[in-house]
Amino acid sequence: MAFFEKLLRSKIFVWTLLVLPGLWPLWPIFVVPDPSVGADPLKFILHHFGFVACVLLAVVLTFTPLRVLWPKSKLAQALNRHRRLVGVGAFAYALLHLIAYLLGNGLSTLVHDAYVVPKPFILAGLTAFTILLVLAITSLHALVRWIGGRRWKNLHRLAYLAAALAAYHQIYARKLFPVQVLWIFGPLALLEIARIVRQRANAAARPKAAAAG
């Protein structure tokens, strides 16, 4: 456990975990060519980067509930060192996803689907991306200080909205319900519910503890 904790605390380890999924498309495109990928490699890249962005966003949002639920856990503490890095990682993959979209579809298709004949799932994706962009920019140290702790925290609660929009975006991009959405966002939803229950219980217990003291 100590080794695992040390590993989790290491920035290099987390950086590696963040970069590796970005290299994955090289495998079915170049290393072991898969015709179902080669048929439209850019679509594979587009879906893959979007998928990784969703996973990272869901993962980084579990850090807080994990710490609330298990405040003494060294692993939860180790994870919470990397909130900014993983959050910016989610933004980076969302940016790659958008670039892949623009490369494959062109700006005209984006304008058509977002403005001329608006498609809700495209608007949801764009809104989620805009939120992540704002949160990534305001994660610069100087800006965190300039905005101030409480205001910064409130602003960054928008990450939950981004996650909900990303889940919607992922579901409505497909002809049938993609079960992976449940695997990506289900654990986060459960942890958030548990966290709210725990925080309510803590708040209820606090005045009693004060009275007893």
Partner: peptide
């Protein structure tokens, strides 16, 4: 949910 004005070319 998406435009039909254009298409990706497979291959």
């Amino acid at each position: 949910r998406w435009s039909q004005a254009s298409e990706r070319i497979i291959g």
